[in-house]
């Protein structure tokens, strides 16, 4: 998947797979020779977050900005001043992994004036298998909530339909009509359909093979 803008915001429902996509996009942009910064902006969920992959990302030369107390025992989602530095523009590519739903996207609102200073992409990640966003109308509802609190507009849909370890190419293909409908309702382009790189490519346009970084400890 090719990123076209410098600032890329990854939003979506809880557990839609934002973090895994954000890490993949950052790694891919780096492989293309770009200088990259990734921001963990999740103020909601204390587990399974971009901060977990700071070592892997840093090793590739990616600048990683995480909330001050991420992965500590301090339940204070304090965002660091370093977040502001990505908007002043040293890096060729900025990926922002936003927390789930409107509860997570509320943190974006604080940066909306700075983000809006240049053209940005705000991707909305969808997963047909997620319980509370399995109809296009429900998925659209969460998107509208996210836009309202972030004070930003979405620019594209990323279909990340998966059932964890039980994902099949057929399952991803079956999500195509759902994804198209969400994109249609939102009047946005369906930018990519992500799939686990270990699976055969689904028969869909804009397939995006991704590495699964977010794993359970017994899968590592």
């Amino acid at each position: 998947m090719q990123l076209n803008r410098r600032v890329n915001l990854i939003t979506g429902h809880y557990g839609s797979g934002k973090t895994n996509l954000a890490v993949n996009l950052a790694m891919d942009a780096r492989k293309q020779g770009k200088s990259v910064a990734i921001v963990d902006l999740d103020i909601v969920n204390p587990y399974f977050r971009t901060a977990d992959f700071a070592d892997v990302l840093t090793a590739e030369g990616i600048r990683v900005i995480v909330p001050t107390y991420a992965n500590s025992n301090l339940d204070i989602p304090a965002l660091t001043g370093a977040v502001d530095s990505v908007f002043t523009g040293d890096e060729d590519c900025v990926i922002i992994d936003v927390g789930g739903d409107d509860a997570g996207a509320i943190a974006l609102g604080r940066y909306a004036p700075k983000i809006s200073r240049e053209p940005y992409d705000l991707f909305y990640v969808i997963n047909h298998c997620r319980y509370l966003t399995s109809t296009p109308e429900e998925a659209l509802g969460v998107l509208r909530d996210i836009e309202a609190v972030s004070r930003l507009s979405a620019t594209g849909i990323l279909n990340n339909t998966n059932l964890g370890e039980e994902t099949t190419p057929a399952l991803i293909e079956a999500s195509a009509s759902f994804a198209k409908e969400v994109a249609g309702l939102a009047n946005l382009p369906l930018c990519a359909t992500a799939y686990d790189e270990r699976l055969p490519a689904p028969d869909l346009p804009n397939g995006y093979p991704v590495k699964v970084y977010v794993k359970k400890i017994w899968e590592t």
Partner: peptide, 14 residues
């Protein structure tokens, strides 16, 4: 039908 759910969500829905 199968869904992908968080443990906490599954607890509540169940």
């Amino acid at each position: 039908e199968k869904f992908l759910m968080k443990g906490n969500e599954a607890l509540a829905e169940a």
